[in-house]
Design a protein around this nucleic acid. Structure first.
Lengths: 225, 225
DNA sequence: GTGCTTGTGTTAGAATATCTAACAAATGGA
DNA sequence: TCCATTTGTTAGATATTCTAACACAAGCAC
């Protein structure tokens, strides 16, 4: 975590960058990505607009940085939970805790969740760069899933084919990982994302049910399957 | 479908509106919502920017209209499938066909899908207005699910509570609908959306598996559960 | 046909945005 | 002390949305 010996200048620079990102985050929360404006940030910080271009190459660069920060923040949240729940805790409980922490994270900062998993705005982080970032969030899930008993797919079935596809790719990136586990990780990801995404976007609004309850029933289903 | 006797003027007006919306759709596909510009549309149509304000109250109004069109287009797609698959077709097959048509629709026009189910951009359609629109897409699913044997939830279980919550709300909007069916509709919605959303946003890129296969296995799981 | 109302387009302009270029000033090390 | 680097400034090109004021044309009543 400790970097190079930072000069006074570098410290000030880092501070200004952080302050700018903080304001940008607030703008994002208030009006979406479209509301993030280098000019307005500068004005709020007491400097002119173009001055900020010394700190961020462009508006897109700023947004890209915010996205990467969000990824690493979410990943850190899952890792904290994973660390707290040691190996003695049943994998089912670990998975449930992980799922809950992701939803909680998303609900407290919806705009940030949508920055990661909502509509990708052209010009920001290249899709290829997001895969490793997204993977980091998934890793604690995969660890817990590894501790679960694996039931083999029927040879020749759709599941088996899919797991074979995943196995070949997965072996290249992580030798310990196996197809079936990764497949289940994918399923967890897509199902939880579907729930969180629709809730955060307000699609459940005024439908008179408790999204947390739906979420929990789906976790149940994931653990049963 | 036939409206009032349209005057020559109204016809021209409708045509220009359609032309503008068509260009907006193309801009959307090319660069996301941010790339939709009344000025640019006007230029392309051979008129000045402000002239378009005779046809659309604002940029937001144009986008709102595009969103509503997309909803009704997607709903129409599901309704066509539902109509084609008569009551003699097994509900399982109808559900599968419905699921496939939604994914196909989303893949051929990702930007439009994300307009409906991606990050909501502030200023556009109010969340309350989207609920009935989204519901219309769901209705064919609910119809098919109704034809499926209902297995009761264990009294007092999470599922039972959730279904009770849904029943009260659902009774008000559609007397024929019951809690368990609607609950299953919700599950279908969230799971399919999670899959489609991540695929369309490119999160599966370079992961070396066939998204269609994953999609089909999840349909299998939905039909089994 | 004459003339009025309505609709449709124009230009001009205010406000805001990104981003570049040229210049000024402050900071920090040799 | 001097010089290079960093950080800030203003000015400007170009784009956006949207309003206001004005010109023209199309449609309808008489």
């Amino acid at each position: 975590m400790v970097g190079q010996p930072v000069s006074r200048r570098e410290r000030y620079r880092a501070e200004t960058r952080e302050e700018a990102k903080g304001i940008a985050l607030r703008q994002l929360a208030e009006g979406g990505t479209g509301a993030v404006s280098l000019n307005a940030i500068g004005k709020e910080m007491g400097i002119t607009g173009p001055a900020l271009y010394r700190y961020f190459a462009s508006r897109d660069a700023l947004l890209t940085e915010i996205i990467i920060d969000a990824y690493s923040d979410l990943a850190a949240a899952t890792e904290v939970v994973a660390a707290r729940q040691g190996d003695d805790v049943a994998p089912q409980e670990r998975l449930r805790a992980l799922a809950e922490v992701i939803r909680a994270w998303a609900l407290t900062q919806p705009h940030r969740y949508l920055l990661l998993y909502g509509t990708p705005v052209p010009g920001y982080v290249a899709p290829d760069d997001t895969v490793p970032l997204a993977r980091r969030v998934l890793v604690p899930f995969l660890d817990a899933l590894s501790a679960l008993p694996v039931m083999g797919a029927i040879p020749g079935s759709r599941l088996a084919v899919l797991e074979a596809q995943l196995a070949t790719w997965v072996r290249a990136t992580d030798p310990h990982m196996v197809g079936p586990v990764f497949r289940r990780g994918l399923v967890w990801w897509t199902r939880l994302h579907g729930l969180i995404s629709l809730e955060v976007e307000g699609h459940f609004a005024s439908m008179g049910f408790d999204p947390a309850l739906l979420y929990d029933t789906e976790i149940d289903a994931l653990l049963d399957g």
